[in-house]
Structure formats: structure tokens, C-alpha cells
Nucleic acid binder design. Structure first.
Lengths: 109, 109
DNA sequence: AAATATTACTCTACCTGTCAAAGTAATATC
DNA sequence: GATATTACTTTGACAGGTAGAGTAATATTT
């Protein structure tokens, strides 16, 4: 399991990517992250919902209520046009970050 | 300039790498980071000295005073054996983090 | 000689993202 | 009816990073 304070700052990107594929609800995103990373990373519930609040306030995602299925009512999120632009920035930023940190990790093992 | 809250969590690794090359003092590390990254990233003074304190308390680095040269007295840091082990962990962790985040950035631009 | 720039480190108060813990509520299964 | 699972919310705390202000010594400019 990768420590989450090292993923910190990249959660917006991860979550936005999943929402940009299709509208999703919180619990689903949490499961999807575990699945895709093979449990190498799991997002904490409290963290996930905090991200939603932050992104919604900034108009990067917007919410609507969906079905009540097998449990609590689902709250779906969709990405806004502003959110798409933001995600695209984050992708660029990630490749810049990789370059920079790699500079310092080179030659070590 | 890359936002620093996205580098957050990797500062230990960057600083330790530089100290592991040779003993260094704070101001030097700050200059070296700017130099190597071509000013794409600059560490803030307050942050740098906060990292020193944290790492010293954990026995990952240790300090000794050097010359007073062209200004304030220099405080040099050297990496301890524990620090070397820690750095080696951080390098492994970095490659794990890259894999995970890349999973979610794939196919986007 | 005085003023300014540069080198070099320290401390405090604050901000932000993450998260443990506890809670609410509905459906499915035993 | 009890338990498990799905699903979301809120509160309070913590840790890392940072602006800003301060201290102090040497070098350069005026």
C-alpha cells in the first residue's frame, strides 16, 4: 500500500479522470481506484467526499441524485467544461512533476 | 513553476538525495534545486529548514557547523546510515507512485 | 564610512489536504 | 429480526508547507 500523503495533490487528477470517463458516484470511485491499482492504493472515504466538496465549490464537477440501489441514495458527479480544462492542466503538470523528481532519483536504487 | 503542494511528500527524497552526494548546507541545497530544475521548482526557505528539523529529529540526517563564509555561519548536514536506508525506501516508493498515477493519466493529454 | 546587497539560518502563526471516528439511512441476506 | 453491505455526511485533529519577520555576518557600492 502506497502512503496517501505521497499521492496527496494527485487525488484531484485521479478522481477527475474517473468522472471524465462517465458520471460516477463516490462509492463507485472508491471501488474503482482499489480495483485499478490492485489494492496498491485505496482512497479513504472522508478524503473522497472532501475532494468532491472542494471540486464542486470550484465548479469543476457538479452533482445530481441518482437511484437508490442496494443501499443509500447515490450522488452522481459529472465533470464540467471548466473541469475538463482543469484536468488537462493536471495531466501536463503530472508529466512536469515526473521529470523533476526523476532528476533527483536518477542513479539511485 | 510547478506548484509545491504537488511536490509535497517528495521533498524528503529530493533533499536526501542531494545530501547523500556530499555533505551540504541549506542555502546550497536551495540553490542546487533551482539549478538542477532550471528554476522549474524552487524550495521555500521555511520549508527547507522545516524538513531539516524533521529529518534530524528522526536521525535521518545530522548537523555540524562549518565555516562562516561570505555571510552567515553554515550548518552542514550529513546523511546517517538510517537515512540511507530511508532514501532507498523513498526511491522504491517513487517508482510505485509513478506506476499508480500513470494508470490514471494514461490516454489523456 | 555608510548604505545596500548577499549569504545564511531561525521562529511563529497560519493554511490546506487528509483522515479517524462517529453518525444516518436504505436495501439485501441469513 | 439481525447482520452485512451499500452509500453519504460531519467534526475535529494532524502534518507538511509557507508567508513574513527577524538575526547576523560579509561583500560591494556609493
Amino acid at each position: 500500500m502506497v502512503r496517501s500523503d505521497i499521492i496527496r495533490g494527485h487525488l484531484d487528477a485521479i478522481i477527475l479522470r474517473l468522472i471524465s470517463e462517465k458520471d460516477r458516484y463516490g462509492y463507485e470511485i472508491s471501488q474503482e481506484i482499489s480495483l485499478r491499482t490492485n489494492n496498491r492504493f485505496q482512497i479513504k472515504e472522508a478524503t473522497l467526499y472532501a475532494v468532491f466538496q472542494r471540486l464542486e465549490k470550484k465548479d469543476i464537477i457538479e452533482a445530481y441524485y441518482g437511484d437508490v440501489s442496494h443501499g443509500g441514495k447515490r450522488k452522481y458527479y459529472r465533470i464540467t467544461p471548466l473541469g475538463k480544462a482543469y484536468l488537462s492542466e493536471l495531466v501536463k503538470e503530472w508529466s512536469a512533476v515526473k521529470e523533476i523528481i526523476d532528476l533527483f532519483m536518477e542513479g539511485l536504487e
